[in-house]
C-alpha cells in the first residue's frame, strides 16, 4: 500500500512540475515564435510576390475565419492604397504538405504570383518548386476562373519533369487559393477598405 501511494505521489508531482515548467516556457516564447514563423517562412515568399509595395505587408495583416480555419492575409499597398493581398494555402506533395503563398490583385482578381513557403520534397527534384522560378511563374496573371491543374489533367500548368507529384501538389494549393479567395472576397474587400483609411 505504502509503495502504491509513493508511486502515485511521485508521478503526480513530477508531471505537475513538468506541466508548470512547460507552461512557463511556452508563454515566454510564444510571441517570439510567432515572429520567427512570419520572418523565416512567410516573409521571403511575400517579398518575392509583392516586390514593389510601399508598405510592409508583414505589419499590415488581418485574419479571417474560414470554416474551421483562421487564414492570415497580408496586404500590399501601392502608393498608399491596398491593391494586393497574399495568403497561404497547402497542397499535398510527395513528402508532405507544401505551403504556397499566393498573391492576388484585388482589383483585377488576377494572381500576381505564387511562392513556396515550406515543403519536404526530394532535393534536386521536387525542391525545384521553391528554388526554380520557372515553374511557379506560370501562375502569374491567371484569373480565378482558370483551371490551374497540370496539363495532363486538362489544366494550364506545365508540370516539372521528374516531379509530377510535387507539381500536382502546388497546383492543388493554387486551386484551393482560388476557391478560398472567391469564397472570402466580400470579407477581404471589407477588411482591405479599412486599411486604406
Amino acid at each position: 500500500m505504502r509503495e502504491m501511494i509513493s508511486m502515485v505521489v511521485v508521478l503526480t508531482v513530477l508531471s505537475a512540475f513538468s506541466g508548470g515548467m512547460l507552461a512557463a516556457v511556452k508563454t515566454g516564447t510564444n510571441d517570439k515564435i510567432e515572429n520567427q514563423v512570419l520572418k523565416f517562412q512567410k516573409a521571403p515568399a511575400i517579398k518575392l510576390i509583392l516586390s514593389d509595395v510601399s508598405n510592409d505587408p508583414l505589419q499590415d495583416r488581418f485574419k479571417i475565419m474560414d470554416q474551421e480555419e483562421e487564414v492570415t492575409f497580408f496586404v500590399g499597398k501601392y502608393d498608399g492604397t491596398p491593391k494586393a493581398i497574399t495568403f497561404e494555402t497547402k497542397g499535398k506533395g510527395f513528402g508532405g504538405d507544401i505551403g504556397l503563398m499566393v498573391g492576388v490583385n484585388i482589383e483585377s482578381d488576377e494572381i500576381i504570383g505564387v511562392a513556396v513557403t515550406t515543403h519536404s520534397e526530394t532535393p534536386g527534384l521536387g525542391s525545384r518548386a521553391k528554388d526554380d522560378p520557372k515553374f511557379v511563374s506560370q501562375f502569374a496573371g491567371k484569373t480565378m476562373d482558370k483551371n490551374l491543374g497540370i496539363k495532363k489533367s486538362g489544366g494550364e500548368i506545365d508540370a516539372m519533369s521528374g516531379a509530377t507529384i510535387t507539381s500536382v501538389g502546388v497546383c492543388l494549393a493554387a486551386q484551393k487559393a482560388q476557391e478560398l479567395y472567391t469564397r472570402l472576397k466580400p470579407e477581404i474587400e471589407k477588411q482591405t477598405a479599412q486599411m486604406a483609411n
Binding site: 508531471s15 513538468s18 515548467m21 520567427q36 514563423v37
Partner: peptide, 23 residues
C-alpha cells in the same frame, strides 16, 4: 514512466527554444 516525463519535458523545452531562437 518518471524518466520519460522528465525527458519529454526537456525535449519540449528544447523544441520551443529552437523555434524561438533558431527557427
Amino acid at each position: 514512466a518518471c524518466f520519460i516525463v522528465i525527458i519529454a519535458t526537456f525535449v519540449t523545452v528544447v523544441e520551443l527554444m529552437m523555434q524561438a531562437y533558431t527557427y
